[in-house]
Simulated scan of single mutants.
Amino acid sequence: MNTAHEAIAQHTTGRTAVAPWAADPYADALRAGRGPLFLRRTDGWLLPLEVERWCARADAVDREVLTRCEGAVLDVGCGPGRLVVELAASGRAALGIDVSEAAVDRTNRRGGQALRRSVFEPLPGEGRWGTVLLLDGNLGIGGDPPALLGRLARLLLPGGLLIAETVPVDVDELASVRIVRTADLTGAGGVRGTAGAPFPWARLGTPALLRCARARGWHAVGQWAAGGRAFVALRSRSTSSSAEPPNSTAVISNHLAAKPSPDSPATDR
């Protein structure tokens, strides 16, 4: 398996042929709006993916998160777009990014705005986003949390807000996983060839995220739990910057001009 740093290099150079979150079986599940779907570690451990919740409307826990957002909001790994749609419905400027064409299509059909793009590719409004959302396990993107946090700091305004969802237990894990359906699992504990290809992933509880974030200049401004889920709010380093002041309308309205072709490399969640 590639190291996490090699995986991120592939994200930016396009050497990865197929994005795990961009192809079947994830795309099939999003189009159907239901699972069951899992992340499977190499030792056979399964993590259920909450496809039905992701495809539903934002719930009370989601809405509480959204009340904490500031300025223009970038939802990294937006999936089928429930958060972007909720923000748009309340008149907030928001953009989702996801490598899955099915996810982006569903978001746009529901009234949100989304772009098919990896977080490690150039994005609209870099350095001008007021809030970045990293929910639904997306701390795992790339299997390298330090690199991901560094990238998100460059997307935000100085002193901007990151709201991240953590695993609600104390865990700090980097692993190779693949996306599987029940039909992909064999009685011997293996997987059939219809399962997704292996890729690096990370799972962090709140203590692990705080350790990682502090070492890279972030500081925590909030922690809370609701509905069996755990969240951390972090602020990026407040330094002088030549970045333009936030302009929510411009950030959002310009994103379609930068939209890549369907063959553009896209390899994160």
Rank of each mutant, 00 (worst) to 15 (best):
residue 179 I to Y: 04
residue 177 V to K: 00
residue 256 L to H: 11
residue 197 A to C: 03
residue 245 P to T: 11
residue 138 N to T: 11
residue 66 L to N: 02
residue 25 P to M: 15
residue 236 S to P: 00
residue 143 G to P: 10
residue 225 A to D: 11
residue 11 H to S: 08
residue 232 V to C: 08
residue 92 R to T: 09
residue 30 L to G: 02
residue 102 A to Q: 14
residue 266 A to M: 05
residue 256 L to E: 13
residue 53 R to N: 09
residue 125 G to F: 14
residue 161 L to E: 02
residue 1 M to F: 13
residue 244 E to A: 15
residue 36 P to F: 01
residue 65 V to G: 06
residue 255 H to I: 06
residue 31 R to H: 06
residue 63 R to I: 07
residue 256 L to V: 12
residue 40 R to K: 07
residue 200 P to T: 03
residue 143 G to C: 05
residue 36 P to W: 02
residue 18 V to H: 15
residue 171 V to D: 08
residue 102 A to L: 12
residue 156 L to R: 09
residue 251 V to N: 12
residue 56 A to H: 10
residue 87 L to E: 06
residue 148 L to R: 02
residue 61 V to T: 13
residue 37 L to Q: 07
residue 206 T to K: 00
residue 44 G to M: 05
residue 6 E to A: 15
residue 143 G to Y: 03
residue 34 R to G: 09
residue 62 D to P: 03
residue 231 F to Y: 14
residue 269 R to V: 11
residue 174 L to R: 09
residue 254 N to Y: 09
residue 178 R to G: 06
residue 9 A to C: 11
residue 94 A to Q: 06
residue 195 A to N: 04
residue 256 L to I: 13
residue 102 A to K: 14
residue 194 T to P: 00
residue 38 F to T: 06
residue 30 L to D: 09
residue 156 L to V: 07
residue 242 S to K: 10
residue 185 L to P: 02
residue 33 G to Y: 02
residue 53 R to E: 12
residue 265 P to M: 00
residue 248 S to Q: 07
residue 141 I to K: 01
residue 9 A to R: 15
residue 128 R to V: 11
residue 34 R to A: 10
residue 16 T to R: 15
residue 167 V to A: 12
residue 65 V to D: 07
residue 164 A to Q: 03
residue 17 A to G: 06
residue 130 G to R: 14
residue 238 S to H: 15
residue 213 A to L: 01
residue 234 L to M: 13
residue 157 L to E: 06
residue 175 A to K: 05
residue 21 W to A: 13
residue 62 D to G: 02
residue 233 A to C: 12
residue 67 T to W: 12
residue 97 I to S: 08
residue 87 L to Y: 05
residue 167 V to R: 00
residue 159 G to F: 10
residue 148 L to C: 11
residue 136 D to R: 01
residue 265 P to S: 01
residue 108 N to V: 13
residue 242 S to Y: 14
residue 130 G to E: 11
residue 100 S to L: 09
residue 157 L to N: 02
residue 210 L to N: 01
residue 47 L to M: 10
residue 186 T to A: 06
residue 149 L to S: 04
residue 28 D to V: 04
residue 128 R to G: 04
residue 32 A to S: 07
